[in-house]
Write a protein that binds this DNA or RNA. Structure first.
Lengths: 362, 362
DNA sequence: TAAAAATGCGTGTACGTTCACGCCATCAAA
DNA sequence: TTTGATGGCGTGAACGTACACGCATTTTTA
C-alpha cells in the first residue's frame, strides 16, 4: 500500500521540492543526509516528506544506481543432501530478484573444517558485497568473520549461527527445538521404560550440541521413563558411524530408540538393516534425501526433522539483499521451525526431491 | 545470476539494436510482438536477444510503465484467528514489493457464506487487476468465479481451492494431509483399542471434508485398533459446537481422543474443561491462537496442525503479482505442508502471536 | 582586505524501457 | 504522374531518482 496524493499519484522528490519551492537536488541531499544542506532546510524537507507520505520509488532508484551486487555463497560440498538444496534455494531467490544486477558465485569447499577458512578468505579478497556462509565451529571462525566484517563486507550466517562474530544476521533452524521435538515424539511412541540413544556428527559444532541439549532436556521433562545413553559421535565419517552403530546395537544396553541428529544417517541405517533391528528400534532422523523415503514410507523410520534447506537458502539471500539495498534498516534474524516429516506428510516433501517444477510444497 | 557481456554489463535492448544496426524501437516491437516489424527482422532480433542473453531490466520497465496495480483481498472476518494473520501475510508481501505501485484493498465480509458473493461482485465491479480470495463452498462460488475470470480479472485461491473454476492458481495447505497427520499422531499416542471422534466446521466445505477423508483413511491404515465415531459438524457456530461437544463427551461412547479440524475449537475446550476431561481425552486441534498456547504448554492438547496463514498470504500475493507483471509465464500452484505444533516447538510460534518484529519464525 | 575555502543550492544528465509520433519507401488507385 | 494508404522503421520524450557540476553566497585564512 502506498500513500497517495489527491491525484492518486504517489509523491516523489519533485513534489516535495515544488511544495517547498526548492529544488529536487536539495530534497535529495536532505533525504540522504548528504552534506550541503542547512539544518533548517533539511528539517523542512523531512517534515514535508513525512507529510506527503513520500516513499522512494525503488524502481527509479535501482535503475539509476544500476547496482551490480556481487555476493558469494560459501558452503561445503558435504553434506550434499543438505547443502545442495540450500544452494538451490539461494539460486531460486536470485532468480526472483527484480530490478538489480546480481552476480552470485557459489564457492564450495570440500567439507566443514577443510578449506572453509581459505574459501572465506578468498571471498573477502575478491571484495564481494556480501557473503553467505555457514559457521559450524563458530569459535575457530569467529576471528576471520570479525576480520572480514571489519573490512565492511556484510556476512550472513546460514544453517548455523555465530552470534557474537559481527555477522549481520542469521537464518537457522532452531537446533535446540529440533532435538526437543525428537524427544517429544519418542515420548509419545515409547510409553514403557526404555533406553534411548543419540548419534550425532560432532559435539564440537554448536548445532549438534544444541540438538542434544534440547533432546536431553525434553526427555528429562516429558519422559522420565526413558533412559538416555551416552551420545555417539560419528565425526561425519561413514565408517566411524557404521562401526559405532554396530557396537551400540550389539552392546548389552541395546537402545529401543535412536535419534540421529545429523543428515549423515545412512551408515546407521545400514547397521540397523544388517542386524535386522528395523521396527524393533524406533528411529528419528534428520533432513531428507532419497534413501530415507522408503524407510519413512514403511515405518522403519518414525520421523525425520527436516531442516528446510531451500527455505533457509532463499530467505538468507533475500535478507542479505534487503540489507545491501537498504543499509541501516534493521535486519531480521530468522529462526525457522523444522518440519516434522512423518509417513503422512512425506509425499509433500518427497515430491520435491525429483520434481522441482509445477507444484511447490514447503 | 545474469548473463553478462564481456564488459560485465548486462545486455539491454540498445545493445541488441546496435549489434543489428537497427533501432531500439524495432527491437522493442520485436520483443513484445507488437505490429510493425517484418517477420524477418523480428526473427533476427529474437535470435540476437537470445545470443546476448538479454534479460529485460525490470526496474526500468516498471519505472516507465508506472503500473498502478490494484489488487483486492476478499476474506471473511471470521475466523479471525486464521484470516487476520493471513491478511497480515498479504500486507507483509505488499510491503516488500519493489519497484511498483501497488494498491491493496482488504474487503472483509462477515463470514463464510454471508456476504462473500456480494464482496466478490463488488471487487469485480471495481475492476481490480487481481483478486485474492478463499473459495470455501467452491460449488456455490464456481459460477461467479468463472464470471469474474471471464472479465479478464485473474483470481487466486487462498487457503482453499476451487480447481475447475478458472482461477489462475492457488495457495493452500494440503487438507487431506492435515487430517492424515492428526490420525498418525494419534496412532502413536493411543496404543490400545480406543474411540476417536472428529469435530469439524462444515462438511460441505471442501477442505473440512478433505481433512476428514485423510483422517479416516490414515486411521484405517495405521491404527486399526482405533474406532472412528461419526463426525460432528459445528457449522462454525459456537453454541452448536459447545452443545454437541457436551453431548459427545457425555454419551455412552465417550471418545478417548478428539480431532478438531476447524480453528473454531474454543467451545470444545470449554466442554472438555467443564467435564474435567482434559488429560483423559487426547486432543488434536487446528491452527494457533492465544487461548491454545497454555493448553499445549500443559499437555492438555497434544498437538495442533498449524495452517501457516501468514505464509499462505505472503506467497499468495507474491504469486499474483508475479502473474500480473509477467503474464503468460507458468504460475506455480503452492501446496504447503502444515506445521505440526507440539509442546516443544510451540515457543517458536507462540512468540509470533504477540511479537511481530525482530526475530521471525516459520 | 583580498584571496581562498566552505557552504547552500539549482541545473542537467543518465539509467533502460515503453510508446506516441512521424518519416520514408512501396504499391494501388485515380 | 499524382494522390493516398499502408507497412516498416527511426526518433525522442517521458518515468523518478542519484549525483556530478557549477554558480552564488558566506565564512575562514593569509
Amino acid at each position: 500500500m502506498r500513500s497517495t496524493d489527491k491525484k492518486g499519484k504517489a509523491a516523489g522528490i519533485r513534489d516535495i521540492a515544488e511544495a517547498l519551492g526548492t529544488s529536487i537536488g536539495t530534497v535529495d541531499r536532505a533525504l540522504h543526509d548528504r552534506s550541503g544542506v542547512s539544518a533548517r532546510t533539511k528539517a523542512r524537507v523531512l517534515r514535508m516528506a513525512e507529510q506527503l507520505g513520500y516513499k522512494p520509488n525503488i524502481a527509479a532508484r535501482s535503475l539509476k544506481l544500476n547496482r551490480n551486487l556481487r555476493v558469494a555463497a560459501v558452503f561445503p560440498r558435504e553434506i550434499a543432501a543438505f547443502f545442495d538444496p540450500l544452494c538451490a534455494g539461494i539460486q531460486a531467490a536470485a532468480d526472483e530478484t527484480v530490478g538489480m544486477q546480481l552476480t552470485l558465485d557459489f564457492l564450495r569447499y570440500p567439507r566443514l573444517g577443510s578449506g572453509d577458512i581459505a574459501a572465506l578468505e578468498g571471498a573477502a579478497a575478491k571484495k564481494y558485497d556480501g557473503i553467505l556462509f555457514t559457521p559450524r565451529r563458530p569459535r575457530e571462525l569467529a576471528g576471520i568473520i570479525r576480520h572480514i566484517v571489519g573490512q565492511g563486507i556484510p556476512m550472513l550466517c546460514v544453517a548455523s549461527d555465530a552470534p557474537d562474530s559481527g555477522r549481520i544476521s542469521s537464518v537457522t533452524v532452531d537446533a535446540y527445538i529440533s532435538g526437543a521435538l525428537a524427544a517429544e515424539l519418542l515420548s509419545h511412541k515409547l510409553q514403557t521404560p526404555s533406553r534411548v540413544a543419540t548419534i550425532t556428527g560432532d559435539l564440537a559444532t554448536f548445532d549438534h550440541a544444541e540438538k542434544l541439549r534440547g533432546f536431553a532436556a525434553t526427555l528429562a521433562v516429558l519422559a522420565p521413563h526413558l533412559t538416555l545413553l551416552p551420545a555417539v559421535e560419528s565425526h561425519e565419517s561413514a565408517e566411524d558411524a557404521y562401526r559405532q552403530s554396530i557396537a551400540l546395537l550389539r552392546g548389552k544396553t541395546r537402545p529401543d530408540a535412536i535419534y540421529i541428529s545429523t543428515a549423515n544417517s545412512l551408515p546407521v541405517f545400514r547397521a540397523l538393516e544388517e542386524l535386522k533391528l528395523f521396527g524393533r528400534v524406533q528411529v528419528i532422523a534428520t533432513d531428507l534425501f532419497r534413501e530415507l523415503v522408503p524407510l519413512l514410507e514403511s515405518g522403519k523410520v518414525l520421523a525425520t526433522l527436516y531442516q528446510r534447506p531451500e527455505a533457509q537458502g532463499k530467505t538468507a539471500l533475500e535478507t542479505l539483499i534487503g540489507h545491501l539495498t537498504d543499509k541501516g534498516k534493521p535486519v531480521k534474524i530468522h529462526r525457522f521451525a523444522p518440519h516434522i516429516i512423518l509417513r503422512s506428510n512425506l509425499p509433500l516433501f518427497a515430491n520435491r526431491l525429483v520434481n522441482t517444477q509445477g507444484i511447490s510444497a514447503d
